[in-house]
């Protein structure tokens, strides 16, 4: 069954990862059948926060993601009050650190997921910093090429699509892993998800940053 998710399109993308195949122009989700466009829309809103301190963009991000993050945290075992506290901290981070969002390595939903995860863990551990990999250079000097961004946003959207079409049993297994309902020993690594293209794109982005460092 995983094979049917690995369509020829993905294979093509690996062979030519830099070919732009999506217009970056933000399109409202309802107008576009292309899921990459929705991811690009959220990214553009984070840029609007970063560049213009736009409260309207912030409100849009809050209204879309806050209820999703809250539900996600509650499913992971947090009570409603803690979940809401974490969400507020996540949104504050979005406001203060919008410049840390690297669209060549994460979609907005992925970025928010990682901030929420780290905040939740820090509160549980009474620590300030979950061990995270060494930070790579970021900022205007290391801006990614537009096609890298488009590719990653598009692939993230495809991953979401693939997850929606997974058989119920497999999807449950993945959810169990992320909601901490299984020990790491029990998690099947073979998820059958098209993670290969995302991995290779992120690898390219990391290479670019490593080169910038040396």
């Amino acid at each position: 069954m995983p094979d049917m998710l690995r369509t020829a399109r993905y294979v093509d993308d690996i062979s030519d990862p830099l070919e732009p195949s999506l217009e970056a122009a933000p399109v409202s989700p309802s107008q576009s059948p292309d899921p990459g466009a929705e991811a690009a829309l959220w990214a553009s809103r984070v840029f609007d926060i970063r560049d213009n301190r736009s409260e309207a963009a912030f409100v849009a991000v809050f209204e879309h993601f806050a209820p999703r993050l809250k539900a996600f945290l509650m499913r992971g075992g947090n009570d409603a009050a803690t979940a809401e506290e974490v969400v507020q901290d996540v949104m504050s981070t979005v406001w203060r650190k919008a410049h840390m969002f690297d669209p060549s390595r994460a979609s907005v939903s992925t970025w928010l997921f990682t901030i929420a995860r780290n905040r939740r863990i820090d509160i549980a551990r009474r620590r300030n910093a979950r061990p995270e990999p060494e930070a790579l250079p970021w900022g205007p000097d290391h801006a990614p090429a537009p096609e890298e961004v488009i590719g990653l946003q598009e692939d993230s959207a495809r991953l979401g699509e693939a997850m929606r079409t997974l058989p119920e049993k497999q999807r449950r297994l993945i959810e169990s892993a992320y909601f901490g309902e299984l020990t790491h020993r029990e998690i099947a690594a073979e998820t059958g998800l098209p993670l290969g293209t995302i991995k290779s794109r992120i690898r390219l982005a990391l290479d670019r940053l490593r080169h910038a460092m040396s």
């Binding site: 993601f65 809250k70 539900a71 996600f72 994460a106 990682t114 991953l159 979401g160 997850m163 993670l195």
Partner: peptide, 20 residues
């Protein structure tokens, strides 16, 4: 980071809990 993307997709497609 690609497993982070799985987490992001779960957030995006998951249920919603209304904020207070």
């Amino acid at each position: 980071e690609s497993y982070d993307a799985v987490g992001g997709a779960l957030v995006e497609d998951g249920t919603q809990a209304e904020m207070s």
